[in-house]
């Protein structure tokens, strides 16, 4: 046995030491992460005011607001969901409700899992090649939305499938036993039960889409636009690319620090707000679920 060879005191000392190390590690990480958030908050909060949120950038983006970037990010994130929610939910329904659980389905599932790990910049290349060049959409909101939609599709699909699989088999059987066909069972019994879980995944994906930078620099972003986009074929600003541009090739990098952090803060408010909403929704769902 592995316990032989240590005195009781030595083992106890080891236990206390190891526990201390684990707690210290955890405390250290949480401290780092918390101080990171606080630092961004403190640096950025001074830039935030009504003008910052509702005005266009002025004087080579060293003054003024970030309205077009906020609008661009919202367009891109919501537009990507128009692609990924219908496709993702449909794929999830097929995988969980229709497909026979065999080799083909495992391959599809493996493919979806793999896609979720493909770097976002590779999706950017793909979008550049397919939407911008081949389809001729050019660098535009439309290309960006399509690229981000494909990027978030695996996440949405996996989360939706997980939610569908968590509805008990008895729901399906009961609906089918009452004479419903598959589609009726899905539409009227399974989807209502699984929908909150599926939407939680979609909200997380929405947050991810809003926080992406590399794919949209390749497919849709512009560093400055004098007007809000009024057609899907316009280029658009985005919060993420705006932070990057200000921080790396802005007109006055050191002098616009507060703008950089202010933009970051707005971006994080959107992304973390969405994630927080998803987490709260999920916790609530878990508590209220009766099965």
């Amino acid at each position: 046995m592995f316990l032989i060879g240590y005195s009781k005191e030595a083992r106890k000392k080891r236990d206390i030491l190891a526990t201390t190390v684990i707690v210290a590690l955890a405390g250290f990480i949480l401290l780092v992460l918390a101080s990171l958030l606080i630092y961004i908050l403190v640096q950025g909060i001074s830039a935030i005011n009504w003008e910052f949120l509702t005005q266009f950038p002025r004087e080579s983006m060293t003054k003024g607001g970030i309205l077009p970037a906020i609008v661009g990010t919202l367009y891109l994130a919501l537009g990507s969901m128009v692609i990924s929610i219908p496709l993702g939910f449909g794929a999830a329904i097929y995988l969980s409700e229709y497909a026979k659980q065999g080799a083909l389905v495992s391959i599809i599932r493996l493919g979806v899992a793999n896609l979720a790990g493909v770097p976002s910049v590779v999706f950017g290349l793909f979008g550049l090649s397919l939407f911008v060049t081949t389809f001729g959409f050019g660098r535009s909101l439309l290309s960006g939305c399509l690229t981000l939609g494909l990027l978030t599709l695996p996440t949405v699909t996996a989360a939706a499938e997980e939610a569908l699989r968590q509805t008990p088999a008895s729901f399906r059987e009961a609906a089918l036993a009452l004479g419903a066909n598959r589609f009726q069972a899905i539409r009227q019994v399974i989807l209502p039960a699984a929908l909150p879980g599926m939407l939680t995944g979609a909200i997380l994906a929405l947050g991810r889409a809003a926080g992406e930078t590399a794919p949209i620099t390749l497919t849709s972003a512009t560093s400055f636009s004098p007007s809000l986009p009024d057609s899907p074929f316009n280029e658009a600003m985005a919060l993420t690319t705006h932070v990057y541009n200000l921080a790396t090739n802005g007109a006055n990098i050191a002098g616009t620090k507060h703008l950089q952090f202010g933009t970051s803060l707005v971006l994080m408010a959107i992304v973390l707000g969405l994630s927080l909403a998803a987490v709260v929704l999920r916790a609530r769902l878990r508590r209220s679920r009766k099965w």
Binding site: P86, L87, G88, F89, G90, A91, I93, Y94, L95, E97, Y98, A99, I107, I108, G111, V112, N114, L115, V118, V122, F123, L125, F126, S129, L130, L150, L153, P154, T157, N181, R182, F183, I186
Partner: peptide, 29 residues
Amino acid sequence: SKTEHGSRLVFLLCAILAMGQMLLIMVFL
């Protein structure tokens, strides 16, 4: 029934698209 067939087809199409993306990415790269 017809809706059953149709809906099944639509969902299958979604799944193929979700998976086919993998192949598409490879092909384009």
